[in-house]
């Protein structure tokens, strides 16, 4: 037990929580904005995977920032495409999203092979990573400075951007006209339509933003978290993000906190594997984040139902 605590109560552990949370945070924000507009982006996983590969491929032949930009453009386009199929062509958005994810799994391997002749890993491609950023002066704070810097400083720039994304989305959703419209479209499309808001257009916009956010998450995977692309490297983070969004009540801050929790579970998985005193099977540890997701999802929904029930009872009481 002590050994586990020794692993967790270190700046390194805090650092790794933030690091592994980054893609989940981006994915969660992507899920948040689309679900707020009443369209369920189930292709988050696939868009992240595609973006991870594109980041590698683009950055091999062009400056890393342009590569990132192009990756985001493509990711946003995939979001648009999902919208086109589900809104315009009236496809089942779930099955379409599943198909997108399938195409992404096979398609990335296909593309990687075309580009490098390699299958599975992109180590032969000379791709670039996005820079890390040191927060100045943080370690100069007395007492807590050193560990704080250990946790917060020297992350990949996209990690900081993920936190910026949460803040930006908070303002977008709650403080701008577009946010108001997105929320109205998701909550009561009839109301939006009755005041002349173009429901479809608003949903397209939300899906494009969602795609771009997933693009950030994917780019982080191969240009920050790791410095290469490997087959199916997103490994369910897109789906976990969907769950995190549900548990976070489709709010930016709520989703962010749940995403951090999943990041914590993920980091625990890595740390527990280093613990030698108690032999916990590695597979059971790896199972934890997913198990936590299901349990969290169920508890969240039970709670939501209870609340709805309480409100209903309250209304009935009032009526008597």
């Amino acid at each position: 037990m002590m050994e586990i605590l020794n692993h967790i109560l270190t700046p390194e552990f805090g650092y790794s929580v933030i690091r592994v949370s980054t893609p989940i945070v981006f994915g969660t924000m992507g899920a948040m904005i689309s679900s707020r507009a009443g369209v369920f982006n189930i292709a988050i996983e696939g868009i992240m995977l595609l973006s991870a590969l594109l980041g590698v491929l683009f950055s091999a032949v062009m400056p890393v920032w342009i590569a990132l930009f192009l990756t985001l453009v493509v990711a946003g386009f995939v979001g648009f495409l999902l919208g086109f199929l589900s809104i315009k062509l009236k496809s089942d958005i779930f099955l379409t999203g599943i198909a997108f994810n399938m195409i992404a799994v096979g398609g990335t391997i296909f593309l990687l092979y075309l580009a490098s002749g390699q299958k599975g890993v992109s180590t032969s491609i000379n791709s670039k990573v996005l820079p890390r950023v040191e927060i100045p002066l943080l370690d100069k704070i007395p007492w807590i400075g050193e560990p704080l810097a250990g946790i917060l400083s020297n992350h990949n720039i996209l990690t900081y951007l993920s936190i910026v994304a949460v803040i930006v989305l908070y303002y977008l959703v709650y403080k701008t006209a577009l946010g108001l419209r997105i929320r109205s479209v998701g909550e009561n499309p009839d109301a939006a339509e009755s005041v002349g808001i173009n429901v479809r257009k608003t949903q397209y916009i939300a899906l494009i933003i969602s795609g771009v956010l997933c693009g950030f998450g994917g780019a982080f995977m191969s240009m920050g978290y790791l410095s290469w692309f490997s087959n199916n490297m997103v490994a369910g983070r897109g789906f976990i993000a969907m769950a995190a969004n549900g548990m976070g009540g489709a709010t930016p801050v709520g989703g962010f906190l749940v995403a951090l929790f999943f990041g914590f579970a993920d980091a625990m998985t890595n740390s527990l594997q280093l613990v030698t005193s108690i032999k916990i099977p590695v597979q059971l540890i790896q199972m934890l984040p997913y198990l936590a997701t299901v349990i969290g999802l169920v508890l969240y929904n039970i709670n939501k139902r209870r609340k709805a029930m309480r409100i209903k009872l309250m209304l009935e009481d009032k009526n008597k």
Binding site: R181, E187, N188, D190, A191, A192, E193, S194, V195, I197
Partner: peptide
């Protein structure tokens, strides 16, 4: 045709 979670003002100016 109102959005339940919005305030009165938000619904008016939507």
């Amino acid at each position: 045709k109102l959005v339940p979670s919005f305030t009165v003002a938000e619904n008016i100016v939507l």
